[in-house]
Design a protein around this nucleic acid. Structure first.
Lengths: 216, 216
DNA sequence: CCCTTTTCACCTAGGTGGTAAGAT
DNA sequence: ATCTTACCACCTAGGTGAAAAGGG
């Protein structure tokens, strides 16, 4: 079994309509567009400025065979075949035509895979290395999504079957989980200001944008 | 086979007499000694202020079975049974009695262990998570060393034998490497100023202490 | 006296949304 | 008008040796 962590935060976002930022910027071939430096002074910063998800997808696993090997991974499926736009006057999303051609289907393997069931169950499994991009040509292995389209994250547990011709049992060795409260709209910039404010309030890295004061 | 990376840097340190810092400070039970905060404002910082090695121990592996599993680990053996002190007037180390009782013998498993030979050989294997402490009661799994004693790092490659009663072949499944240029003296503060200057010049995290200017 | 511990300023490294400019 | 990008200030997180303070 798999229990979604931070469920109440996910639901809080979901009530407003979760948005996740997607960017391009996979790799810098020759340097920095407008100059040579970025911030502190790293001349040629390392690859990937693509965005993580917030909230981070995290699960607590149970019921695995402690001694068996498992591979954990995630993918993202379109929730419908529509394209959306945001209507500011009504603060709501409107369908705006059919979906663009689906991006290359990619999966993200949890970097600790494969590992024993005991290891996975010992603590919360966090997909905080997963990054989203809207670059169809991305070659960094990130998850490719279309902006202004809706997605459902999926989580898969694959039992590594030591038997030969284990392919024939593949369907038995595969368990998938979809948590509806983790659905989101991919965007290149936040549309709903209440989403922005909730991100700022709950993401530690956005503390610099907090107005007011404390919380418990 | 295993080739030591950054060999010329190790040799440069070794010619001067490499020193590695060891500290206590394994865990903070209740808070911060002189108050509640440290720097930026983290109220209860995460464990471990113990020190890494610099240079970092890194090797390039070859000749492994790409499809077999291997565990990589390191340990540290005393180079002699002496205690040392540093004579500033002569800028040299002098023997100063017998060694203190040996610290609990610990090993550091590379955190990617176990992994396939192909994975280990794909890129340089770096032990940058390895930390040194002089706290005999350390319970964070760090390597425990006595200050003012000399040590030889050792690197071990263990073939994970899938056969039953593989214990009987353990000696065959174990390959060890010692690079003499990685010997060092454990200290709580640097003694030889030339070591300090070389650390400052070559460790990126010490850039704040560099006087002069550039290098290629 | 010799060695250890604490605290600090200053870095590396990289995750935030804001903003203005650019693209379609 | 709508969406995208580049750059920025401001964070989190944590790895440096210096200097002062502490301990035998």
């Amino acid at each position: 079994a798999a229990r979604l962590e931070m469920g109440s935060l996910w639901e809080e976002f979901n009530r407003l309509g979760t948005e996740m930022i997607v960017t391009k910027a996979g790799r810098w071939e020759l340097g920095w567009p407008g100059g040579l430096q970025r911030r502190g002074g790293t001349p040629f910063p390392p690859p990937s400025l693509c965005r993580r998800m917030f909230p981070t997808f995290q699960v607590k696993l149970s019921g695995l065979d402690p001694l068996a090997d498992y591979v954990l991974l995630m993918d993202f499926i379109p929730l419908d075949d529509k394209r959306y736009r945001y209507a500011f006057h009504s603060s709501s999303w409107l369908a705006a035509g059919r979906a663009e051609p689906a991006a290359p289907g990619r999966v993200h393997f949890h970097p600790d895979s494969p590992a024993k069931g005991a290891q996975w169950m010992r603590q919360i499994v966090s997909f905080d290395k997963l990054k989203l991009t809207n670059n169809l040509l991305d070659d960094n292995g990130h998850i490719i999504l279309n902006s202004m389209h809706r997605y459902q994250p999926r989580f898969h547990v694959v039992f590594v079957d030591p038997r030969r011709d284990s392919e024939r049992f593949a369907h038995q060795n595969f368990k998938s989980f979809s948590f509806p409260e983790t659905q989101f709209m991919a965007v290149t910039a936040y549309q709903n200001h209440r989403i922005t404010q909730l991100k700022i309030a709950s993401n530690p890295f956005a503390k610099g944008f907090r107005d007011g004061d404390p919380e418990p």
